[in-house]
């Protein structure tokens, strides 16, 4: 569904992505994690045909996204982090755009709006930023596009809306579709994403299925982490620390935030713990 080979991108002289390799199969909900400015939005822009790769090969749904083939775009929904919607009712805006998506489902749209608690009859320019984002999420999922690319979709959403978002994406995921969702708020996507890709300074520092992480690592509670060489990453918790350590797997829940810190701060140790030659 997505195949990137040595993708590089630069804004003028500023290199933003460097030799990115990636492969994504249908049925995945890929979490693209990284700090602000790590290159996530640029990578999504390349996938959506909004930015053109400087070097490397990019294939999305069997097309080169730089060619912006409408046959590819009708099977891809791109939700930017920042966007503006016109002074129209949500229903009117939907009416003029749904025709572009051959697999549009009115039922999915209505159900999505109901779950996200958005009234599509409201004027889009009068909706709050969070509601506008939820409206676009509902629209995007109703297109039934095979590839859905979302840039920071949970940014600006309140806590109940984040949970509604996770429910909706989980319900929409299928063996034929794939999602690429970027975020720097890693907890927002916990229990939803698989695989996970972590980008740091334009390079992929981790790309792995969550099942492998669950199998090889575990999140434990420790009263003290000093002197513990096996701790890959830790965070203060009441009465001690939550820590990511190798072994002890068995499908337990993985703290994505700790995994993220491990990938960024201790890539070699993490890669060794995952039993891979490198962190990629």
């Amino acid at each position: 569904m997505i195949r990137l080979n040595s993708l590089s991108y630069a804004y003028g002289k500023k290199r933003v992505l460097e030799n990115i390799d990636m492969e994504l199969r249908p049925g995945s909900v890929c979490g693209l994690l990284g700090k602000n400015g790590a290159g996530k939005t640029t990578l999504l822009g390349v996938l959506g045909g909004l930015l053109f790769a400087e070097h490397g090969k990019v294939e999305v749904l069997g097309y080169d996204p730089a060619k912006r083939d409408p046959r590819m775009l009708s099977d891809l929904f791109f939700q930017p982090e920042e966007f503006e919607l016109p002074a129209l009712r949500g229903t009117d805006w939907t009416a003029i755009r749904r025709g572009f998506y051959p697999k549009w489902s009115e039922t999915a749209f209505r159900d999505g709006m109901a779950l996200l608690e958005v009234d599509p009859a409201q004027r889009l320019d009068r909706m709050s930023a969070g509601t506008r984002k939820k409206f676009l999420v509902g629209f995007g999922l109703a297109t039934n596009a095979r590839l859905v690319v979302m840039d920071e979709p949970t940014n600006g959403l309140d806590i109940p809306s984040k949970s509604q978002f996770r429910k909706l994406v989980a319900a929409a995921a299928s063996d034929e579709r794939a999602f690429v969702i970027s975020t720097h708020q890693v907890r927002d996507l916990e229990s939803l994403i698989d695989p996970v890709i972590i980008i740091e300074s334009g390079r992929t520092v981790l790309q792995t299925p969550i099942s492998l992480v669950s199998e090889r690592l575990s999140t434990v509670f420790l009263t003290d982490v000093r002197g513990r060489a096996d701790v890959l990453a830790s965070d203060v918790a009441p009465g001690g620390f939550r820590a990511l350590v190798p072994g002890g797997g068995g499908g337990g829940e993985i703290d994505l935030e700790l995994l993220f810190h491990a990938a960024v701060d201790n890539p070699e140790k993490l890669s060794a713990a995952l039993g891979r030659g490198d962190a990629l």
Binding site: G48, G49, P70, F77, F100
Partner: peptide
């Protein structure tokens, strides 16, 4: 328009 064109440019039209 920078913030409007993101949705316009990803619309499936050649």
């Amino acid at each position: 328009k920078p913030l409007e064109n993101r949705l316009s440019l990803t619309l499936p039209v050649s």
